[in-house]
């Protein structure tokens, strides 16, 4: 018996539907976790990282935003 015979008789067609439900569940779980009010302050502070990514520097020109 070949692997393809095993797989052909394994009823895999239903797997696609199971996966769809599975992935929807993950979506709902992530959404629920992320949008809980208790997480708001924590995550929103992380949202400012792009603006606060310049560490302490020995150079006055390291604040490159002033150059443009």
């Amino acid at each position: 018996m070949k692997l393809s015979d095993v797989v052909a008789n394994a009823g895999l067609a239903i797997y696609a539907q199971i996966a769809l439900v599975l992935f929807l569940a993950v979506f709902v779980a992530v959404a629920w976790r992320v949008f809980r009010p208790s997480r708001k302050a924590d995550l929103e502070s992380a949202g400012g990282m792009a603006l606060h990514d310049a560490p302490q520097s020995d150079s006055p020109t390291s604040r490159l935003g002033a150059i443009a």
Partner: peptide, 25 residues
């Protein structure tokens, strides 16, 4: 975009949802 606008991303929480949804779908 935040750099150019000099504003933090509108919703970091939405960006998390955005990421996982795209990767999964």
């Amino acid at each position: 975009m935040p750099k150019a606008a000099e504003k933090p991303v509108f919703s970091y929480r939405l960006s998390i949802l955005h990421f996982w949804s795209l990767v999964f779908m």
